[in-house]
Design a protein around this nucleic acid. Sequence first.
RNA 1: GCAGAGGUAGUGAAGCGGUCAAACACAACAGACUGUAAAUCUGUCGGCAUUCGCCUUCGAAGGUUCGAAUCCUUCCCUCUGCA
Length: 363
Amino acid sequence: MSYMHLFKTTGTFGEFGRVGEFKTRRGIVKTPTFMPDGTRGAVKCLTPEQVYGTGVQVVLNNTYHLHLAPGEETVAALGGVHGFGRWDGPILTDSGGFQVFSLSKLRKITEEGVKFKHPITGEMRFISPEISIQVQLKLGADMIVAFDHLTGLDDDSRKDTLEAFERTHRWLARCVIEFKKLTQDMPVGERPLLFGVVQGGLDLELRRKSLEIVQASDVDGIAIGGLSVGETREEMFTVLKALAPLYDPNRPRFLLGVGTPEDLHFAYEQGIDMADCVLPTRNARHATVWTTGDAKIHLTNEKYTKDPEPIMVGCDCYACAHDFSKAFLRHQFKVGEPLAGSLASIHNLRYLTRICDEYRALS
RNA sequence: GCAGAGGUAGUGAAGCGGUCAAACACAACAGACUGUAAAUCUGUCGGCAUUCGCCUUCGAAGGUUCGAAUCCUUCCCUCUGCA
C-alpha cells in the first residue's frame, strides 16, 4: 500500500549522502531539508511568511499538544492544520511519541497505550497508536508518524531500551492497520504519508533489526527516533553510521529531533533526508544564535553592547541582510521585546536551511 | 516650625541584641537548551582568597554591651500630615 519509488534521487555526495525529492499531497519536498517545530500549530514568534522566507518547506505540528488544545475537532472545523495555522505547504505531525519521553513523570505506559496527565490542568488523556493515527488524520497533516515508545539514553533509562524497541514494533503494526483502515477510501495522491519509527537505543544490532522491521512494514517513510535524548554525540553518530548502508533507497529518511549544525551535517552525510528540531527556534528565543563556522554566540553578552555588525556577515537571512546589529538585538533581548526572538529565529532557521541548500547545490 | 514615618548591598525590600556579608524580588554577569510542560531554566552577584578562610559593610559620629543592622545620644537627609 505504501507508495512505490516515492523518493527520487537526483544526486549524491560523500559515501551515503543524497539529494532528491519526494511528493506529498501538498507538493514536492526537496531534500535534504530541515523542518522547524511548530508544536502548537505555529512556529513560535514567526508568521508563515517569515518561516517560508528562511527556505523552510515543511513545518511540524504536534499531535499531543493539538489534541489537548484546541482539540482536533476544532482544528478540523477550521480547515485542518493548514487552514488553522495558515501554512500552505506540507505539514508533518509528530505522533505524541516524544511526550512519552518528555512527560515521563506524568504518564503511565501500558501495552494498550499511554495515559498522560496534563502538566498544568492535571487532566488525564489516553493516547494509543490508534488514537494517535486518528488524531493526526483529523488534523489533516500531509505526513504523519507512527506512535512509538521513546526512552531516554541517560544511564538510568538505557535498561528500558529493549522494552521500548519491542513495543514500538507492536505499536507500529497497530498504526499501520489503523492508517489503512482510515485511508482506504482516499484517492491515490490525496493520502498522507506514514512514517514508521526505528528504535533500539545505542544497540547497533537492535537498531539494524528495527530498521529491517520498519522497512518491511507498509510505511512510506523511515523515521529514526530515540536519538539526541541524553547520549553523547559520538554515540548518536555511531548509530547513524551503522544505519547508513541499510536504508531503502525508495523511501525518505527522517531523523527525529536533531539538531545542531554539526549533527545535521553528519546526519545528511549518512543519508538522512529530513530532520526537525526545536533548537533553532528555542535557542533563538533564548538569545543564542549560530554564526560562522557553526559557532554559537549569546547575543545578550555584554561585549555586544556596541557591536554594529549583524549576527553573521554574509548571511542572507532577513536579520543579517537588513543589517540588524548585534547591539540592537542585544538591546531588544535585554528589554524583552519579542522582535529579538523573531529575528534570531529567522537567522537560526536560515542557518540550518542553508546547510541543506549547500548539499542540494552539490548535485 | 510642629507632629508622625523612615534612611539596609545597583534598585525595591526583609531583618529589629548573638545562628548576618545580611532573606526575597528585580537588575547585572555567565551558562544550559536537540521528535517544545521551555520568550524557560541554572549558576554568580561587598572585597580578597576562590579549599579551610580573612577583611570592610546596614545615613554619619559617638556610646551601652562579652557581642549592635538591631538599644541610647547627637547630627545629616527623605517622605506624609498640620501650620
